[in-house]
Design a protein around this nucleic acid. Structure first.
Length: 861
RNA sequence: GCGGGCGUGGCGGAACUGGUAGACGCAACGGACUUAAAAUCCGUCGGCCGAAAGGCCGUGAGGGUUCAAAUCCCUCCGCCCGCACCA
C-alpha cells in the first residue's frame, strides 16, 4: 500500500481546481445565492494559525453550500493600508507599497497552500488605486448627501504614531497600536455622521434584522451606542452673578429630572465654554490644566478623586423660589457627553455623593425606598439608586420615579426651560488620519472658496510617488510634498492646497464586501455594480474574530446605510449572519532567565521541558493566545510541510467548538494526520468500488446496519455543518469510520455507498484527500463539484429500540421493543424485564412513566 | 461598578434543550507485530467497594422543583469577556 503523501497530492489537486476554474463565481442566477465571507487579512507578512482557523471555517461553509447547489461567492482580498507599512518603511527603508505588495504575494501563496475554495479572480487590495478611487467617489457622494462634516474638535493624539485615534482606538488611555499615552489636541477633522444613524443602528439590533448575529456582539453594540433618554434643561444664573462670557443660563443634561428637588450643585466639564470663559483667572486656569493633565488611563480614572472648583456663580432652582445652587468646574464631567454640564443630586448618584461629601454640600433625599420611614431615612452614608416614591419634592411628592421623571420633564417644558432629549454615547466617526499610507481624502482647501470637493472628473487622487527615505522623518510625508500638495482651486483656480489627511483604514474595510460582490469586469465603472450587489448582498455568512465586534462591524453597518442613502445599495444590514470564532492558543515557555522561548526551542520529556540547545530547565507557562511577544507561535507552513493542509484544517476544526478558543498541540496535529492516513488506507483498499456499483438503488442484500450508519452520518454531519458545530461533525465522521471498520465483511455495494458518502462528507474539511479518494474510488469528475449526499429518512428510523428502564430514577435495565409499540406494551415489557423485576422485589409499583422513544421510569416504594 | 458568558474525567469536549452523563479525539496504561524503534493493530481508561456479577457515589458548593436535573429555580464560590466618572 502506498503511503499517502500530501506533499504531492495537495499541490496536484490545487492545480486541477485551478485548471478546472472550479471556484470561479458563477453568473448563473437561477440557483439560490450564498455569499460566504471571512474578514479579510491585513498583509502583515505571514499567515498565522488564526487565519487558518478563520478561513478553514469559511471554506467548509463555502464547499458545503456549493455541494448543496447554491451559487456561492467566496472571495479574498487584503486590508492593505495602515500604519505597519509606514513603520516598516521607517525601519527597513522599503516603500510601504513595496512592503505591502510583497507581503501580499507571500501570503497569497500561503493561503493557496491551504486549499481554499476561493474565487481569486475577485482579489484586490484596498491600497489598489482601482479600489480606493471609488472610495473617494463614495466619500464625495456622502458629502453631497450631508453625511460628512468637517469640524474642529479635540482629538486623541498618539504622540508616537503621530496620528489621531478614534475613541474606539484608545484603550485604557493608550493608543491601540503604539501603546503610548494618548494626548488631547485640537484639530480640524473630517467626520462621518454616524450618530445620525444611531437610532436605526440600535433598532436593527433588536427588531429581527440581526437575528443571525451572536447575542454578545449585539449587546456590545447596544452598549456602545449607549442610548439614554432624559432632559436637556437650562438653569438661569442668579441675580448678581454673571460669567465673563455674558451668558445668562447654563444648559445641562440629566436622566434623573425626578431628583431635581434634591439638587445641591451644578457642575461643568473643564472644557466647557463656561469654564473656559474664566481662563483669565490664574486659579481657574491652573485647575483646568490640572484636570487635563490627569491621565485617562484606567488606573488614573479609578484612583481619581472627584475634584471641583467653585466658580463665583450661582443658579436659580427652577422649582424652588429663592433657592440657588453653587456652580463648579468638576473633573468628572465629560464635555463630550450630553451638555458637558450636570446638576448634582448627591442623595441619588454615586459621583455626586462623593463630590458632595468632599465639598460639604447638602444631601437631600427625595426618593424614599419602599418600607422606609421618611423621618429616619437618610442618604448621608451612601446614595440610594433604586426605585421608590418621591418626597421632599413639592408637586412630585408621592409619584413613582418613572412618573416623576415624566412630570418633571412636562413642568420644565411648560416653563420653557428645556425639553426631553435622547443622548447617545456613540460619537461621530472621525475618519482623518495624518498618515501617508491611506486613501487620500478628496478635498481641497482654498483661501477664498473654503473646503472644496475634488471634482469627480479629477479622481482618483493618487498617492504621490515618493522615495522611501521620506518615512524617516516623523509625521505625514504628504505635508512635505509641495508639488503634490499645491493645486489650483477647482472653483476659482486660485492657489489652493490638497487635504493631506488620509482615511482611517476602517473606512477601507467598511465596503469591501460590496466590492467583492461586484463582477471585476465592472470594477472601473463605479464603486459597485448595483445589479450585482442587489443579487449578492447581504453577505449570508460572515466569519471573523470577536475583536471586531464593535469597531469594524458597526462602521460597516453604518456604511451600508450611507451607501444606501447615496443609491449604491439596497440593504442597510450588510451581514445577515455573523459568526465570531475563538482564538488559537498555545502553551508558553520560559527559560531560567525568564525569557520567552519558541516551541521549537523546547524539548518535552514527560511532564517536564528543557531547552533544546543546552538542556537547561524550562518553565511551562499558561496557555495563551498565540503572539509574537510570547513566542508561543507555530507557523502554518511548518505544519503544512509536515502533515499537509488537510491535517491542519482537520485538527483546527476538530478540537473545540468554533466560537471557543482552541489550543494548538503537536499531538493533536499528529492525530489529525493519522486520521488522514487512516481514511486513505480504507479507501485505497476499495479502489474502483464506486465505479463498480450502481448506487442509485440498493440491492436486496445490502447490509442494513452499515446503511443505517451511513445515513445517520450524512444526516448528522449535515446538521452539524448547518449549525457551525464543526467539532461535532468531525466526531461523527470518526464514529462513522469506526463503524466502517467494524463491518468490514459488509457487501461491496453497501461499502461503496458508505465510502461515496464518507468522501463527500469529508470534502469540506479535507478537500485534497477527498479528491484523491474520489478519484481512487472511481467517482465522476471532481468531488468539489459532486452533490452533497442526502440521507434516506427511512433509514434513520429504527425498527426496534433499546429503551432504558429506570426504577425510581435509577437505570436498572433495558428492553428491546418495536418502535411502534404503544405505551402499554412498553410498560409491560419494562415490568417484565428480569433486571427490573429484581429491583422491584418487595416494592409496590405506584406509577410508570413512559416517554415514547426515550425512557421508562417506574416509581415504586 | 454595570452588562454578557462559563464551571462536566488527566486534557479538549459530547449529552437530541428535562429523559441511559462522559460520544469523539488527545494523553496514559496493557498487549500483538518487530532484533529494536517508529508506524500500525487490539484492549483498558470518572471515583470507591468487589475475584466477579453487581452496587454505591459523581457534572464548582449548598438547597429546591420534578417520576426524572449537567440542563429549570434560589443562595453562595470561582473563572473569562466587553464597557466603564455617559449624568
Amino acid at each position: 500500500m502506498a503511503r499517502y503523501n500530501p506533499k504531492e497530492i495537495e499541490p496536484k489537486w490545487q492545480k486541477r481546481w485551478e485548471e478546472a476554474r472550479a471556484f470561479l463565481t458563477s453568473t448563473d442566477r437561477s440557483r439560490p445565492k450564498y455569499y460566504v465571507l471571512e474578514m479579510f487579512p491585513y498583509p502583515s507578512g505571514r499567515i498565522h494559525l488564526g487565519h487558518v482557523r478563520n478561513y478553514s471555517m469559511g471554506d467548509v461553509v463555502a464547499r458545503y453550500k456549493r455541494a448543496r447547489g447554491f451559487n456561492v461567492l467566496h472571495p479574498m482580498g487584503w486590508d492593505a493600508f495602515g500604519l505597519p507599512a509606514e513603520n516598516a518603511a521607517m525601519q527597513t527603508g522599503a516603500h510601504p507599497a513595496t512592503w505591502t505588495y510583497s507581503n501580499i504575494e507571500h501570503m497569497r501563496a500561503e493561503l493557496k497552500e491551504i486549499g481554499l475554495a476561493i474565487d481569486w479572480s475577485r482579489e484586490f487590495a484596498t491600497c489598489d488605486v482601482r479600489y480606493y478611487r471609488w472610495q473617494q467617489k463614495l466619500f464625495l457622494d456622502f458629502w453631497r448627501a450631508g453625511l460628512v462634516e468637517r469640524r474642529e474638535s479635540y482629538v486623541n493624539w498618539d504622540p508616537v504614531d503621530m496620528t489621531v485615534l478614534a475613541n474606539e482606538q484608545v484603550i485604557d488611555g493608550k493608543g491601540w497600536r503604539s501603546g503610548a499615552a494618548v494626548e488631547r489636541k485640537k484639530l480640524s477633522q473630517w467626520f462621518l455622521k454616524i450618530t445620525d444613524k444611531a437610532d436605526d443602528l440600535l433598532a436593527a439590533l433588536d427588531d429581527g434584522r440581526l437575528m443571525g448575529w451572536p447575542d454578545n456582539v449585539r449587546v456590545m453594540q447596544r452598549n456602545w451606542i449607549g442610548k439614554s433618554k432624559g432632559l436637556r434643561m437650562k438653569f438661569r444664573f442668579a441675580a448678581g452673578t454673571t460669567p465673563p462670557n455674558g451668558s445668562r443660563e447654563i444648559e445641562i443634561y440629566t436622566t434623573r429630572p425626578d431628583t431635581l428637588f434634591g439638587a445641591s450643585f451644578v457642575a461643568v466639564a473643564p472644557d466647557h465654554p463656561l469654564a473656559q470663559s474664566f481662563a483669565d483667572d490664574a486659579k481657574v486656569a491652573a485647575f483646568i490644566a490640572d484636570c487635563q493633565k490627569a491621565g485617562t488611563s484606567q488606573e488614573a480614572i479609578d484612583k481619581a478623586e472627584k475634584k471641583g472648583f467653585r466658580l463665583p456663580l450661582d443658579v436659580e432652582h427652577p422649582f424652588i423660589d429663592g433657592k440657588t445652587l453653587p456652580v463648579y468646574i468638576a473633573n468628572f464631567i465629560l464635555m463630550g457627553y450630553g451638555a458637558g454640564a450636570i446638576f448634582g443630586c448627591p442623595a441619588h448618584d454615586e459621583r455626586d455623593h462623593e463630590f458632595a461629601k468632599k465639598y460639604r454640600l447638602d444631601i437631600i433625599p427625595v426618593v424614599l425606598p419602599e418600607g422606609e420611614d421618611p423621618l429616619t431615612f437618610s442618604a448621608a452614608e451612601k446614595p440610594y439608586l433604586g426605585p421608590g416614591a418621591l418626597y421632599n419634592s413639592g408637586f412630585l411628592d408621592g409619584l413613582s420615579v418613572d412618573a416623576a421623571v415624566d412630570a418633571a420633564i412636562a413642568r420644565i417644558e411648560s416653563m420653557g426651560l428645556g425639553a426631553s432629549a435622547t443622548q447617545y454615547r456613540l460619537r461621530d466617526w472621525g475618519v482623518s488620519r495624518q498618515r501617508f499610507w491611506g486613501c487620500p481624502i478628496p478635498a481641497i482647501h482654498c483661501g477664498k472658496c473654503g473646503v472644496v470637493p475634488v471634482p469627480e472628473g479629477d479622481l482618483p487622487v493618487k498617492l504621490p510617488d515618493v522615495d522611501a527615505s521620506v518615512f524617516k522623518t516623523p509625521g505625514n510625508p504628504l505635508d512635505r510634498i509641495p508639488e503634490w500638495r499645491n493645486v489650483p482651486c477647482p472653483e476659482c483656480a486660485g492657489p489652493a492646497r490638497r487635504e493631506t489627511d488620509t482615511f482611517d483604514t476602517f473606512v477601507d474595510s467598511s465596503w469591501y464586501f460590496a466590492r467583492f460582490a461586484t463582477n471585476p469586469a465592472s470594477w472601473d465603472a463605479g464603486p459597485v455594480d448595483r445589479e450585482d450587489v442587489d443579487y449578492w448582498l447581504p453577505v449570508d455568512q460572515y466569519i471573523g474574530g470577536v475583536e471586531h465586534a464593535i469597531l469594524h462591524l458597526l462602521y460597516a453597518r453604518y456604511f451600508s446605510r450611507a451607501m444606501k442613502d447615496a443609491g449604491h445599495l439596497s440593504v442597510e444590514e450588510p451581514f445577515a449572519n455573523l459568526f465570531t470564532q475563538g482564538m488559537v492558543t498555545h502553551v508558553t515557555y520560559k527559560d531560567a532567565d525568564g525569557k520567552w522561548l519558541f516551541p521549537d526551542e523546547v524539548v518535552l520529556e514527560g511532564g517536564n521541558a528543557r531547552r533544546a540547545d543546552d538542556g537547561s530547565p524550562v518553565t511551562i507557562g499558561a496557555i495563551e493566545k498565540m503572539s509574537k511577544s510570547k513566542k508561543n507561535v507555530v507557523s502554518p507552513q511548518e505544519i503544512v510541510a509536515k502533515y499537509g493542509a488537510d491535517a491542519i484544517r482537520w485538527f483546527i476544526l476538530s478540537d473545540s467548538p468554533p466560537e471557543r478558543d482552541v489550543e494548538w498541540t503537536d499531538a493533536g496535529a499528529a492525530g489529525a494526520w493519522k486520521l488522514v492516513a487512516r481514511i486513505w488506507d480504507t479507501v485505497e483498499s476499495a479502489k474502483g468500488l464506486m465505479k463498480a456499483h450502481d448506487l442509485s438503488a440498493p440491492p436486496a442484500s445490502a447490509d442494513m446496519a452499515l446503511r443505517r450508519a451511513t445515513h445517520a452520518a450524512i444526516a448528522g454531519v449535515t446538521d452539524d455543518i448547518e449549525n457551525f458545530r464543526f467539532n461535532k461533525a468531525i466526531a461523527r465522521l470518526y464514529e462513522f469510520l469506526n463503524v466502517l471498520k467494524r463491518v468490514e465483511g459488509a457487501d461491496a455495494w453497501t461499502r461503496a455507498e458508505a465510502l461515496s458518502a464518507l468522501v463527500r462528507l469529508i470534502a469540506p474539511f479535507t478537500p485534497h484527500l477527498a479528491e484523491e479518494c474520489w478519484e481512487t474510488l472511481g467517482g465522476n469528475g471532481l468531488v468539489c463539484d459532486a452533490p452533497w449526499p442526502t440521507a434516506d429518512g427511512a433509514l434513520l428510523i429504527r425498527e426496534t429500540l433499546n429503551l432504558p428502564v429506570q426504577v425510581n430514577g435509577k437505570r436498572r435495565g433495558e428492553v428491546s421493543i418495536g418502535a411502534d409499540a404503544d405505551a402499554k406494551a412498553v410498560e409491560a415489557a419494562a415490568l417484565g424485564d428480569p433486571d427490573v423485576r429484581r429491583h422491584l422485589e418487595g416494592l409496590t409499583v405506584r406509577k410508570v412513566v413512559v416517554v415514547p422513544g426515550r425512557i421508562v421510569n417506574i416509581v415504586a416504594n
